[in-house]
Design a binder for these strands. Structure first.
Lengths: 166, 166
DNA sequence: GAGTTTGTTCATTTTAAATTGAACATATCT
DNA sequence: AGATATGTTCAATTTAAAATGAACAAACTC
C-alpha cells in the first residue's frame, strides 16, 4: 500500500494567494521564496504536512523542501508535530510573532552583529597603529560612532522582542 | 584644466576594511553591495565626494554609482553637501543611526507592510465567499492572526525609532 | 536480506538581481 | 557655437543565489 495520505495536488486560489503573501514577507527578510512557500502552505493547512506533501502540493523539488524545512526549523518557525502513526515526520508552523522574530534575530541578525563587532575591533587596531594626526582622529571618531550603533542595536533588539510578546 | 580634485586612486587598507564592514551591513538589509561600498567610502572620507570620485576610487561604473547614490538619497542616508564652488555635486553621509533606520523603514519596510495589508484584505474577502464550514473558520482564524502581526508591526516600528534616538 | 519509503547532500542548472557601458540629456566653460 | 564635464537611463552582460535532481544513507517493511 502506498501509505501516502490523500492530500490534494495543486493549490486552491486561497492557498496560492496566502502563500504569495508569505513569499513577499520572506523576501523582505532576505530569505528565498521557497521558504515563504513552505511556511505559507503550513500556515494555511489545518493538518501537519510531510516533506512529500510539500513537494507534491507546491511542485518544488525534494532538495528545496528539505533545505527549506531545515532553515525553518533552525529559525524556530516550524516544528515536527509530535506525531501520529509511523516514523515519517509531519511539520507544523509556529504562529507566534514573538517567537518568529526571536528566531530570526538569533539566527540571522546576531551573527552579523557579532562578526561586525570583530571587524570593528580590527579597524580600531589599525587606527592605533597610525600616526596621530587629523586623519586618524577623524577615523577614531567614525569608529566610535559605529561602536555606538552596535551597542544600540544590542539594547534595542531584546526590547523589540519584549514589545512583540503577547 | 581638468578640474578633478586630487583624490587618490585605489583604497587604503583601512578604507577597504571599513567598506567591507558596510557591505556586510547592507547585505543584511537586502541591499546591493555597491550601496555598501558607496556609503562606506563616504563614511570614512573627511571630504565630501563627487560621483566621479566614487567611480574612480571604488572602481565601479558610472551607472552603479549614479543608481546607488539615488537609492541612498531616497533612504536619506546621503545628502548633497551644500557646496563649495561649482555646479558639481558632492555627497556626504548621514551618520545618525536614527535617521538611517527611519529612512529604511519608510522606504523599504512600510511599502511592504502596506501591500501586505492589501493582500490580507483580499484574502479576507475570499473567506467571506466560502461556505461557513470548519475549514473557512480555520482560515478566518489564521487571517485574524496575520492581522495581529501587521498591527503589531505598525506599533513597534515607531517605537523602535524612538529608542534609537539620541 | 532484498526492496521500499523517507530524507539529506551536493554538483549542476536555472533564475533573479546587480553591474556595466553606451547612448542620451543637461549644464559649463572658453 | 563647439568642446568638455557631469549625470541619468536602460538594454545587454555578468554575477550571485536558489532550485533541481541524481546519488547516497538510514530507517522501516515484509
Amino acid at each position: 500500500m502506498s501509505g501516502d495520505t490523500d492530500v490534494e495536488i495543486g493549490l486552491s486560489d486561497f492557498e496560492s494567494q496566502a502563500i504569495d503573501f508569505f513569499c513577499d514577507g520572506v523576501k523582505l527578510l532576505g530569505l528565498p521564496k521557497s521558504i515563504g512557500e513552505i511556511y505559507g502552505l503550513l500556515f494555511v493547512s489545518q493538518e501537519a504536512l510531510s516533506l512529500n506533501d510539500l513537494v507534491k502540493r507546491l511542485g518544488i523539488s525534494k532538495g528545496s523542501a528539505s533545505q527549506g524545512l531545515k532553515t525553518l526549523r533552525k529559525l524556530g518557525a516550524v516544528r515536527e508535530s509530535d506525531s501520529v502513526e509511523g516514523r515519517k515526520s509531519y511539520y507544523q508552523p509556529d504562529v507566534e510573532l514573538k517567537q518568529l522574530v526571536g528566531g530570526f534575530i538569533k539566527e540571522q541578525v546576531r551573527p552579523h552583529l557579532e562578526s561586525g563587532e570583530g571587524k570593528l575591533a580590527n579597524l580600531k587596531e589599525m587606527v592605533k597603529e597610525m600616526p596621530g594626526d587629523a586623519r586618524s582622529d577623524f577615523y577614531a571618531g567614525r569608529l566610535q560612532r559605529l561602536g555606538q550603533w552596535s551597542k544600540r542595536a544590542k539594547v534595542v533588539l531584546p526590547l523589540l522582542q519584549k514589545f512583540l510578546g503577547r
